[in-house]
Design a protein around this nucleic acid. Structure first.
Lengths: 192, 192
DNA sequence: TGTACATCAGTGAACGCGCGTTCACTGATGTAC
DNA sequence: TGTACATCAGTGAACGCGCGTTCACTGATGTAC
């Protein structure tokens, strides 16, 4: 059956959104296309009307997650005028973000996965993350644009590492201890 | 055929060592047991004389990698008396470590994977990493033991995050830029 | 000392399952005439 | 205005492959007697 004009675009976006969550939550190999499509009340055959293959969707999912994440960050910044960066750090290293892997930062959840992919996927990741970081860099200390972007990269990757360490550890107290130690450290290092 | 007394133990260790590299290089799902065994000139059937299942081997591989990594770190520290921590940071964030994923830090390569595993695997990881970090904590600033261990956790997870970011990015210049910015930052932050 | 039997690391065929991808088909709507 | 045909998002069976795991078997060495 034929569908209205924007129908295809809408379906595509629904797939990307769901995929972006599943990839973060389960890793690339943990996501099955038939499952994903079924969750959207579609069948797996239609998938290839929208994407070349699974890797293509992976790239889209990362981009989507980075855009979503940057939006959330900017919202937090707007809600905390004068202490934007502190609020961003506290949010990134919060107990909620620790637990909500699928809705959380794709860098923490997927950077190691991405690193195993060929150049093309990594190029796409690089472009997406640099675009997402640009507006946030304004809140980071540094004399030049370049300095601010580098500082944001350090801060961001460092927080992603701390979040991953906390997620990988079993004991709940230790998880929270890692998060709170990292919060203190990064706030002291970047917010003055 | 029957083998000499320590033969089984030696085979087991060969498997764990090879697995620990492959897991880091390809991720857990990227490793096939038949491949792994064949690389050691064995067949896949014998695997289950040594391990309960693949997840069991994964736990062993991580532990092995952490021990190996800690040894390497201590060696670097011994070779750089007076500037131990600086040498450790420079080594961790070196262009060699960027490229040698399979021989490198298991936290960078596998933390996100570990985070997706059940409690039992994460408990094993936690115990192994805490044991590996204890002797290295001596080189980290801090008034108390606990403070030093927390500082090491921040430093270590932060560097792992930076390494992963550099690995996930495509452009070679950008990769090196991330590494060198992180080196400068962590040296300034922790090597007074 | 020699013989019969037990042991068990390793072998390789087989099983079963999940999953990425392909493909012939459907059928409602758009287009050509 | 009506009719014939084209389009194409979505369907679901089928294919093929990889891979974790099981299992009956092998055969050299150790042990019991």
């Amino acid at each position: 059956m034929r569908y209205p004009a924007e129908h295809k675009q809408e379906t595509r976006e629904r797939i990307v959104r769901a995929a972006s969550r599943q990839f973060r939550g389960r890793g690339e190999e943990g996501v099955a296309i038939a499952d994903l499509m079924q969750q959207l009340h579609l069948t797996h055959g239609g998938f290839y009307r929208h994407f070349k293959n699974k890797e293509d969707l992976f790239g889209e999912g990362i981009t989507q997650a980075l855009e979503e994440g940057a939006e959330g960050m900017l919202r937090v910044a707007r809600n905390n005028p004068g202490s934007e960066l502190k609020a961003l750090i506290e949010r990134y290293l919060s107990p909620e973000h620790l637990v909500r892997v699928a809705e959380g930062c794709p860098v923490a959840a997927l950077a190691a996965d991405i690193a195993r992919h060929p150049q093309a996927v990594r190029m796409r990741f690089q472009r997406a993350i640099e675009k997402s970081m640009r507006p946030i860099a304004a809140f980071v200390p540094g004399a030049t644009d370049k300095e601010r972007r580098n500082n944001l990269t350090i801060l961001f990757s460092g927080m992603a590492g701390a979040l991953n360490m906390a997620r990988a550890v079993a004991d709940e107290d230790r998880r929270q201890e890692i998060l709170s130690a990292a919060r203190d450290f990064y706030i002291r290092a970047f917010c003055t």
